[in-house]
Design a protein around this nucleic acid. Sequence first.
DNA 1: ATAAAGTACAACCAAATGGTTGTAGATGAG
DNA 2: CTCATCTACAACCATTTGGTTGTACTTTAT
Lengths: 115, 115
Amino acid sequence: MVVDELTDDEVNRIFRALADATRRDIVRRSLVFTLSVSELADAYDMSFAAVQKHVALLEEAGLVSKEQRGRERIVRADLERIRRAQRYLDHFEQIWRSRTDRLDALLAEDETTSH
Amino acid sequence: MVVDELTDDEVNRIFRALADATRRDIVRRSLVFTLSVSELADAYDMSFAAVQKHVALLEEAGLVSKEQRGRERIVRADLERIRRAQRYLDHFEQIWRSRTDRLDALLAEDETTSH
DNA sequence: ATAAAGTACAACCAAATGGTTGTAGATGAG
DNA sequence: CTCATCTACAACCATTTGGTTGTACTTTAT
C-alpha cells in the first residue's frame, strides 16, 4: 500500500517550486536530458549560484534529485512527484463532486418527500 | 475551440496561490459553501485584512472570483482554473513520454541496423 | 604538482510575502 | 437618520525570495 499523503508543508514547497518559470524549465530539461548543475546553469542568463539555488528549491520540494558523478552533480527530475501534485489537485474536484452529490441527494429527497 | 494557453506569468500566479495552506482551504470552502469574505475570515486565526489579501491573491490567479451581493462579496472558486493547472502538469508527462519515445525509436533503429 | 572545473556556502541586497493596525466608503438594519 | 457591518486600501514591519559576489573544497586534467 502506497501512503499517498502529503503534508501541508510538502504541498507548499511543491507548488512554490513550480511557481517560477526558470524552475519549471529546469524540470523540463532534466526530464529530457542528463545534465549537471553547471550545464543547466549555462542555459540561463543568471549566475551559477542563482541556478544552484533554484535546483536546491526543487530538491527540497522533491521534484528533483542530485546524483554525484565525479565532480559533477547530475540533476534528475522526479516525474512521480509531479503526478502527486496532479493527484493532489484531484482533491478539489472530489470536494466539488461530493458537494453537488449532496445537493443532488437533497433534491432527490425533496422529490420523494413532496409526493 | 478553446485556447488553452497560459502565460508564464499566469502559471506563476496559479501555483504561487496554491502554495499556501490557508489559500487552499479558502478554495475548498468556497467550492462547497456560498461564503462572503468576512464569513471566510471567521474561519481563520488571523485578521480580516489578511484573509482579504489571500482572497485577492487567489483572485489574481483566477482561482476565485468575487460577486457583490448587497454589502457582501461572495467568493466563488473556479474549478476550471484548477483543472487547467492539472492539465498544465500533463505537459511534463508528455515531455517525458516523447523523450522515451525518441529513445525507443533509437533503440528500434539500432536493432534494425545491427542485423 | 598545478591548474581548471564543478560545486557548496556565506554574506549581502532589493523586492515580494504574509502578517498587522488604522482609516474611510458602501450598504443594510433599527 | 443613525449605527453597525462589510469591504477596500494604505502604511508599516519581519521574513522569505531571487538575485549577486566572493571564498573554499573536491575532483579531473595536464
